[in-house]
Simulated assay, not measured.
Amino acid sequence: MTTNPSWTLRSYPTAMPTVDNWALEDRPMPQAAEGELLVKTLWLSVDPYMRGRISPAKNYAAGFKIGDLMLGGGIGEVISSEAPDFQPGQIVISDYFGWQPFTVIPASTAKLVTTTDAPMQAALSYLGMPGLTAYFALLKTASPKAGETVLISAASGAVGQIAGQIARIKGLDPVAVAGTDEKLEWCRELGYRAGINHRQSADLVADVAAACPNGVDVFIDNTAGPIHDAAMLNLNTFGRVVVVGTIALADRFDQPDIGLRHLRKTLITRARIEGFLLDDHESEYDAAIADLLAWHKQGLLHTREDVAEGIETVPHALVRMLKGENFGKQLVRL
Rank of each mutant, 00 (worst) to 15 (best):
M1R: 15
T2R: 15
T3W: 13
T3D: 12
P5D: 15
T8R: 14
P13F: 06
V19L: 09
R27I: 02
P30H: 09
E34H: 09
L38D: 03
K40L: 05
T41H: 13
V46L: 07
P48I: 02
P48E: 05
R51A: 01
I66F: 10
L69N: 08
G74N: 12
I79P: 00
I79L: 11
E82I: 00
A83L: 07
A83C: 08
F86W: 03
Q90G: 13
V92A: 08
Y96M: 05
Y96S: 10
Q121G: 04
A122D: 09
A122C: 13
A134E: 01
A134G: 15
F136E: 06
L138A: 10
T141L: 03
E148V: 06
S156P: 00
Q161F: 03
Q165A: 10
I166G: 10
R168Q: 10
V175E: 05
T180N: 12
D181C: 01
L190Y: 07
R193G: 09
I196L: 10
S201H: 04
L204Y: 01
A206F: 07
D207L: 07
A210Q: 15
F219Y: 15
I227Q: 11
H228T: 00
A230G: 05
N236H: 04
G239D: 02
V241G: 06
V241M: 08
V243Y: 02
A248K: 05
A250W: 00
R252E: 00
Q255A: 12
P256N: 09
I258T: 07
I258C: 01
T266D: 01
T269C: 12
L292S: 12
H296Y: 15
H302T: 11
E312H: 10
E312A: 15
E312T: 12
P315E: 06
P315I: 02
A317Q: 11
R320Q: 09
V332P: 08
V332F: 11
